[in-house]
Every structure is written in C-alpha cells, then in structure tokens.
C-alpha cells in the first residue's frame, strides 16, 4: 500500500484539479439531477416524487420531445460527417508542407475558438438573413436565395454549414495523425505506381482509422450537445416551426422558461443515455474498421 502510494502519488496529484472540480462542482448536480428526474419540481415548491411519470410522458405523449430528437439526429447525421470531411481535407492540405504552417494552423483554428461563442452565432444570423451577405452574393449571381433562417426547410442547413466551418479541433488532430504516418509508405507506394486516390483509400484512411474513430466519437458527442448556436439563431425557441428545436434547446426551455426542472432533468438523462449508446456502438464496431499499430493479438 505504501509503495502503491509512493509510486502513484505524483499521478494523482496531477489529477487533483480534475478530481476536485468533479467532486466539488459536478458530482452533486449530477446526482441531484438524477433524483430530480423522478420528481415534479418548479424551483419554488419542494420537489415531489412522481416515479417514472416524467419518462413515460416523454416517450408516450410528448410530441415536441420526438421532434427535438428528430432535429438533433438530423443535425448529427449531417454535421458530423461534414465537419470531419472538411477537417480531414484541410489537414491534408496543411500536411503537404506549406510554408509558415503554424500561421495557417492558427488561422484555421480560429473559427473553432470563436464558433462556440454567442458573437459568431449572431454573425451567422446576419449572414443568412433574408438580405444578408449570403443572399446578396447569390443575388449577384442571379440566384434568388431562400430566406434561410425563417424557412423550416433550410434553417437546419445554416447550422450544418456553421458546424463545417468550425473544423479546427478535429483538423488539428487529423493533422497530427497524418504526420504520424511514415513518409516511406507513400514513397514505397509511389515507386509501385499507386495512384493518389488509391494511396488515400488504401494507406491514409486505414492508418488514420484510430484518429478518425477518436474524432468521430468526440464530434458526435459534441453535435448531440449543440446548444448556443441553435439557441441564438432560433431566438431561443427552436423556430421556425420547431425546425431548430435541438434537444438541448428544448431541454433549456423546459427548465428555465417553463420551470419544469424535474422533466428537464429526465430529458438530460435520456440524452446522456442516447450519447452513451452511440459511443458504445462506435466502440463495438471499431474492431472491424480500426487498425491499431501496437495492439496485441
């Protein structure tokens, strides 16, 4: 025991900030929300235990819950691949060995830093406004653009485009992954006359699989949790016609607009379980498509 402590103390010491944060700040609310999800609680009166009522209502009678799920799934399915493809594309360009690569890395990462901010969401709203920059540009080309944000058919795509634009962090991870693939492999392929597309599909993609997997899991979780951009662009309501009713926007409204704190807690736990299921699926399927260089047999 003594030796265990002596050997691992530095590790735990470095983990301490996280532990302190988790136990002091996060664990309490997590457990409280689990409890509250089985209650009716309006933040004025004390929570009242109602068993599984919140959950049965959610799955059997709440049409907006299903709508929120649909919007969120739709978004995840579009935004995650779009962002990953964008990120991989830019990473491959940067990997070609541009001069002053550090500068470009920083520039390309900037949207990701700004992207989560309210300011960018507001900017986005102006860009895609009926008379915004996007439609003005389309107008010069003789195309009359739709009213992106008030049209339920197009509103979600503005957010997908925003997500694509925020490719910075997966791009950096892809770039590191690409750097990790030995040049020799491409040179050997070059001498053997491997066309570029085949080099990409047969060498780059398989060797990048662990990184793709990592990014896929992280970005999927991120996409399920998308909140601030959807909230701002839809004026906090999920409008138009609930087409931007992201799960988290719905949850927020239930909690802080209608003060149905118990129900909102139940929504949060269902989202957690959905994310966990998707992550688990990714992990279980990964053994069929992810090749790890140093795994044991």
């Amino acid at each position: 025991m003594k030796r265990f402590i002596a050997r691992n103390a530095p590790g735990y010491l470095f983990l301490m900030p996280w532990f302190i944060g988790f136990f002091l700040l996060a664990l309490g609310p997590i457990l409280a929300s689990l409890y509250l999800s089985f209650t009716r609680y309006d933040m004025v009166n004390a929570p009242r235990w109602i068993g599984f009522d919140n959950y049965t209502y959610m799955f059997t009678r709440d049409r907006r819950f299903w709508k929120a799920l649909e919007v969120t799934f739709h978004y995840v399915v579009l935004a995650v691949p779009a962002r990953l493809i964008m990120a991989l594309g830019v990473a491959m360009l940067l990997d070609k060995g541009l001069r002053s690569i550090g500068f470009y890395r920083a520039i390309f990462y900037l949207p990701s830093l700004l992207g989560a901010s309210i300011a960018i969401a507001i900017l986005w709203r102006q860009l895609f406004d009926a008379n915004g920059v996007v439609n003005q540009t389309l107008g010069y080309l003789g195309v009359s653009g739709p009213n992106w944000l008030t049209n339920p058919d197009t509103s979600l795509y503005t957010l997908v485009i925003l997500a694509m634009w925020q490719f910075g962090s997966p791009m950096l991870i892809f770039l590191a992954g690409l750097r990790g693939i030995p040049r020799d492999l491409y040179e050997a392929a070059e001498i053997d006359g491997t066309p570029p597309w085949r080099q990409f599909t047969r060498i780059t993609l398989p060797l990048l699989a662990p990184v793709i997997f990592f990014n896929l899991v992280l970005q999927t979780i991120e996409a399920f949790k998308t909140f601030s951009s959807a909230f701002i662009i839809s004026n906090g309501s999920g409008a138009p016609a609930d087409s931007l009713l992201f799960y988290t926007v719905y949850l927020f409204n239930e909690a802080f607009k209608f003060f149905r704190m118990g129900y909102a807690s139940a929504l949060a736990w269902v989202l957690l379980i959905i994310i966990a299921i998707f992550t688990a699926i990714a992990f279980f399927t990964s053994k069929y498509w992810v090749h790890y260089e140093n795994e044991r047999d």
Partner: peptide
C-alpha cells in the same frame, strides 16, 4: 518513379502495417 521499372527496399522496411 513508377515508370522507371525499379524496386526499392527501405531502411524502415516501409511495410503497410494494416
């Protein structure tokens, strides 16, 4: 390189690990 009808063996072997 591919049209020169030659083969090369690399120091690192350069085998495709997957």
């Amino acid at each position: 390189a591919s049209k020169r009808e030659l083969s090369m063996v690399f120091q690192s072997y350069a085998l495709y690990p997957h």
